[in-house]
Design a protein around this nucleic acid. Structure first.
Length: 244
DNA sequence: CCCTGATTCGC
DNA sequence: GCGAATCAGG
């Protein structure tokens, strides 16, 4: 199997979406996770929280000036520590599916509605900011705690009215959220298959602390319920396994 | 042990 | 350029 443009595109998108190399390899098929990682690095997709990468930033800082002749254990690359901490860069996006980080809490699923229109928690909030009352939260379909509207953002944040999706390289995804639009604040739930012309991401505002909006968090993080009458089709990111 | 990503190095 | 082998942290 070779790295066609489409496969490379899929790799980029999935890698940027925070999926693991193993998952990407499965989706692509015909390649090992090592191949995926190797390719990702060759593409310059580096970064991403890695378990075995803790120094470099620390080493560079700690060894910035010590008098003794710098031993330089390893061949220092031309670019001395790209300083990746230029931005806040808060939550690394966890992989959806496979080991949901949320423990299956035995909660009552209050809304069985289909997604999309239930983003508002059934909690009424006063228009006036009174004394900090005990925080009331509703529990999402998956057992995750929803954020109340007041917690969604800083109370006094001017919230600059920025276009979420400025310009699109292609007409097919005009108005859609492409990979280029992904950031820490918008839902990364993929719609369609990578490589296809209309592939895009949800693009809604994320449920703070999660990579997805509230609606898609409900899909991504599902509590283990009695198998009784659970929806048969568990929606999966990237439209599920590609039918080949 | 399992998982992860990073790196090396022969091809 | 590719990816198996290897390394190393969680």
């Amino acid at each position: 199997m070779s790295w066609t443009d489409e496969r490379i595109d899929t790799l980029k998108k999935m890698w940027d979406s925070g999926l693991t190399a193993t998952q990407i390899a499965e989706e692509l098929g015909g390649v090992s996770r090592n191949a995926v990682i190797g390719k990702a690095h060759r593409l310059g997709l580096q970064s991403r929280p890695s378990p075995v990468k803790s120094n470099e930033a620390k080493a560079a800082a700690a060894e910035a000036k010590p008098a003794a002749a710098a031993p330089e254990p390893r061949a220092a690359p031309p670019a001395p520590a790209p300083v990746v901490e230029a931005k806040p860069a808060p939550a690394p996006v966890p992989a959806p599916e496979k080991r949901a980080p949320i423990a299956a809490a035995p909660v009552v699923v209050d809304d069985e509605d289909e997604d999309e229109d239930d983003d508002a928690a059934p909690v009424i909030v006063d228009a006036e900011p009174k004394a900090p009352a005990p925080v009331l939260r509703s529990v999402g379909p998956g057992g995750f705690l929803r954020q109340n509207p007041g917690e969604q953002s800083a109370p006094i944040t001017p919230a600059p009215p920025r276009r979420l999706v400025p310009a699109k390289p292609s007409d097919a995804i005009a108005g859609k959220t492409s990979l280029l639009d992904l950031n820490d604040r918008i839902c990364k739930w993929p719609l369609g298959h990578p490589g296809e012309p209309d592939f895009h991401f949800c693009g809604d505002k994320v449920n703070p602390g999660f990579p997805y909006c509230v609606a898609h968090c409900g899909h991504a993080y599902q509590a283990q319920l009695p198998r009784r009458d659970r929806r048969p089709p568990p929606p999966m990111p990237f439209g599920g396994p590609r039918v080949r």
